[in-house]
């Protein structure tokens, strides 16, 4: 959620300076051993030789990355061309996650703005209303969504009963269903950071703009949006990143017909393919993309902090 919130340095004091190392050691150790080391191990695995039907042989190999980027035909002996299969899968994931992010932004921004402009007392209640569904298991939310949308589901029943449509709309097993599922999964991640940013926004700026005869639309675009941009970017990242790696929504709502990155990776370890180095390589590529994105965010953040002086 408010990812950057705790990184600020202004409130730091040195009361327990002497004990610092001991205070931090447990967390350092746990995260180094259980997160950093495994990621490093995964990097190594991505350069190993695959064992037939799962597992690895401890021999250096670039085969996993070669498979990812180069197409050598169905039989592996054509001259190497650029492999579009996986780029396409990544592109589809980016596209689906992007569409979900935009959907979240279009709905989430007005919502966050509306909540932030409520009287101070009722704001927590609104935030509460937005976050409750998020605490329900992601799986259950996705399944509920599928249940609601299916051809014989309540939504289609309802629309047919009120005479709006004659035959059910096919939503399940389409790209739109996946986008809707992703949107539904991560919407609060969009609303909360924007809400936090708008809440901090000084509305006298808007008033000043209005005094200078700026229209509401202009005020929104030229004054408010730049001011709350960090919150918007944070929200977009928090929706986009988990959407890219998700496999519940494509699996349950998309009919598992088209791979997304998450399902591609899962397939290497739990499904037909059994190609561990390739799964590790695809994971590394996904992680690198996300880290680049986060670095971009950090730079934006630093820039806006500088601008604030």
């Amino acid at each position: 959620m408010a990812a950057g919130a705790a990184s600020g340095g202004s409130a730091v004091t040195d009361t327990y300076k002497d004990a610092r190392t001991w205070l931090l050691l447990p967390a350092w150790l746990t995260l180094t051993i259980l997160v950093a080391a495994p990621v490093f191990m995964m990097l190594i695995y991505s350069f190993l030789t695959k064992e037939f039907r799962g597992g690895v042989i401890w021999e250096f190999s670039l085969a996993a990355y070669d498979q990812f980027f180069f197409d050598r035909g169905l039989f592996g002996d054509d001259p190497a061309k650029i492999e579009w299969t996986y780029i396409l899968i990544f592109w589809r994931s980016i596209w689906q996650a992007g569409a979900a992010t935009i959907l979240s932004l279009v709905i989430g921004f007005p919502t966050a703005y509306f909540i932030a402009t409520r009287p101070e007392k009722s704001r927590p209640l609104w935030v509460f209303l937005i976050t409750i569904p998020y605490w329900v298991n992601l799986l259950i939310r996705t399944v509920s969504m599928k249940f609601l949308l299916r051809d014989q589901g309540p939504l289609n029943d309802f629309l047919i009963n009120i005479g709006l449509i004659d035959s059910p709309i096919h939503i399940v097993n389409t790209n739109f269903a996946v986008q809707l599922g992703l949107f539904y999964s991560y919407l609060p991640f969009m609303v909360l950071p924007i809400y936090a940013a708008v809440e901090r926004y000084n509305f006298s700026l808007s008033e000043a703009a209005a005094d200078l005869y700026a229209t509401k639309a202009t005020t929104l675009r030229r004054i408010l949006l730049p001011a709350v941009k960090p919150g918007v970017i944070a929200g977009c990242i928090l929706v986009f990143v988990p959407s890219m790696g998700s496999f519940l929504a494509p699996d349950l709502l998309g009919g598992a017909k088209n791979f997304m990155i998450g399902s591609l990776i899962e397939e290497q370890f739990k499904g037909n393919a059994g190609n561990w180095p390739f799964g590790a390589a695809a994971s590394m590529i996904l992680m690198s993309m996300v880290l680049v994105l986060l670095m971009f965010y950090a730079r934006q953040q630093a820039k806006s902090e500088k601008a604030e002086g």
Binding site: F52, L74, F75, G76, T85, Y86, L88, I89, A256, K257, N258, F259, E267, N272, A273, N275
Partner: peptide, 14 residues
């Protein structure tokens, strides 16, 4: 041989 069938399957699901 299996490698080719795996490739066909990946092509199918891409």
């Amino acid at each position: 041989t299996q490698a080719v069938y795996d490739q066909i399957w990946t092509n199918l699901k891409k």
